[in-house]
Structures are given as C-alpha cells and as structure tokens.
Simulated assay, not measured.
Amino acid sequence: MRPFSILAGLALPALSIATHAPSTLDEDSSTQLPLVIWHGLGDDFERDGLQEIAALAAKVNPGTYVHLVRLADTGSGDRQATFIGNVTEQVAAVCSQLAADPILRTAPAVNALGFSQGGQFLRGYVERCNVPPVHNLVTFGSQHNGIAEFQDCGVGDWICNGAEALLRAGRWTDFVQSHLVPAQYFRDPVELDAYLEHSNFLADINNERSTKNTSYKRHLAALNRFAMFMFDEDTVSVPKESSWFAEVNVTDGSVIPLQQRPLYTEDWLGLKQLDEQGKLDFKTIPGQHMHLSDKVLADAFKEYFGAIKDSLPSSPGLVVQQAS
C-alpha cells in the first residue's frame, strides 16, 4: 500500500519525468497520449512516491510521456505553494506551462491525473483553458464539492499549522481567499451565502453563481471519460463524498448525491451530459485518503490511459473524443 499523500491536495506548473516521447505504435495503429499529473496538498514533485507513480504509468503504458505539474523549482517551494498561493493564478500558470511544452502542445490530446486537490485544479484547467486538450480525466480523493473542515497538521509543521490558523480565523476575507490554497475550495453548506460571495476558486469552476460560464460546461462535457475515485475510509478530506460532487450536511451526515443537485439536474458543468453518455465514472476504493496500492493505480492506468486505437485530430481548446 502506497501512502502517497495523507494530506488534502493541490498542484503546480510542470516537470517532465518520463523521458518517453508520445509514440505511435505501428503494430496496432495506436497512439499513446502523454499524461499530466497534478499532486496534492503537502506533496512536491521531488517526492519518491510521485516519481514512482510516474515510472509506473510509463511501465503500464509503454511510450507514455509523463509531465509532473509544479509551481516552484525546488521541492520545498513546490510544497509551500500547495498551501500558500492564489489558485486562480496557479491554474493560469499551469495553462501557460502545458501549452509551452513542446511534446504536450503537439500531441493530439493528453490524459490527466489529479491527486486530492490536484484533481479539482486539473478540472479547472480543463474548464478554463484546455490547451492542450484533455482526453481522459481521472481524480483520486479530490474535493470537487469542496471541504467543510480543514485537516489536522503534524507537530512542527509550521506551514500547515499557519494555513489552518488562517482558515479558521477569516476564511472569507479577501486576503485569505487570495493567499490560502485550501480556503479557496472550502465550502460549508451552512455558510453558502458567504461562499458564493467570496470564494476565489471553487464557486467559479463549479458554476454555482447566478451567471454561468458556458465555456466551462462545453469544455468539461467534451471529455472522453471523467473518472472520480473516492476513498471509502477517508477522514482527511471532509466530507469524503465531495470526491463525487455530493452535498453533505456535516452536522447530521445526510448526503445529497450529485444526481439530485441542481449542479446536475440543470447541468451547470456538463456532468449530466457525460453521465447520460456513459462517460462519468463513480469509483470507490478501500482505505484512507491517498493510501493507494500499485494495483489500484495500474488498473486505473490500463483502463483510462491506454493507447488510443484511432488517431485524434488536434482541436485547440476542445477535448477531442475517441471515435466509437
């Protein structure tokens, strides 16, 4: 079992780990798409666990070019950026970074893998820019409907403890919403009005405000597959059902599944469209937040990141779907 991260989840502009360029496999006329990975809160691109996952992705699907998102040149700076920063600016930086990569920008599409908060940030990338376009998006333990509690921090972890203090003291202030990363996907239904007014990131990419961004829906609905993995014993990401866009009352524990929410019934993001087309997958895996086995990862890589049978034409700003 791989405790890849037991924190909460963000990501960063990119380091390319695997030296394999995306290749066309002549034996079956298939194309292996590059893979972009955005890690979670408290992690960094230099961690052994992330390097091993990049290597596993290339082993399961030979020819995979793996691009690790980062927001700093050092591991310590990268980790700090998962706690402190403006998520809107970070997503914009990743948009520029992926578009500038010579392999990613010339690929017909890319696959994307988000761990914890990196999952909703990659979704923000899809909605806001999506060049290069994402073919399949897979998220593990991501907080697509936000968090209603902040995590416990380790003794002596001053970055985490400082962020927690800011979140508890003034999560809806402009300063916190533009500087503290977890606050920008904090969403307590009890404080919904304050959230809709002040949220710097999540309320926007979830299209929850009265004015809807139609391009967000168009881009997300163009995904070939969107798979959301929830950890069934997750006590770090609260509520765990946020991984599936569910609404949870943290006081009584009642759960409103995505399919019963206006987000779905009015299709603010194209999730209903994806679901009706059989392209929205709700997956459950055992264990605590971000405790992943190689088997779970390898199975996901085989199912969602394998070679594409037919070549995909390039289409800037839109995700090109595999021909059926």
Rank of each mutant, 00 (worst) to 15 (best):
A8Y: 06
I17V: 14
I17Y: 14
T19L: 02
H20L: 07
A21R: 00
S23P: 00
T24E: 13
T24R: 06
D28W: 07
S30P: 08
L35E: 12
I37L: 09
H39A: 14
G42L: 00
G42A: 11
R47D: 11
D48V: 11
I53V: 10
A57G: 14
V60Y: 09
L68D: 06
L68E: 07
R70G: 03
G75T: 12
G75A: 10
D78T: 07
Q80P: 09
A81T: 04
A81C: 11
A92D: 07
L104R: 06
T106N: 13
T106S: 08
T106H: 14
A107G: 14
F115P: 11
Q120W: 11
V126K: 06
R128P: 00
V131F: 04
V134T: 06
F140S: 03
G141Q: 00
H144C: 10
G146L: 09
C153T: 02
V155C: 07
N161W: 03
A163V: 12
R168V: 02
H179S: 11
Q184S: 06
L196P: 01
F201M: 07
L202K: 05
D204V: 07
S210P: 04
K212F: 06
L220W: 08
N224W: 05
F231S: 05
V236N: 13
S237D: 01
P239G: 04
K240D: 03
K240W: 02
S242T: 11
T251E: 12
T251Q: 08
S254C: 08
P257N: 14
P257I: 13
Q259R: 12
L263W: 07
Y264R: 01
E266K: 15
G270C: 04
K272H: 15
L274K: 00
L280Y: 09
D281K: 04
P286N: 09
M290F: 14
V296W: 10
F301R: 00
K302Y: 06
Y304C: 00
I308P: 00
V320Y: 10
Q321D: 11
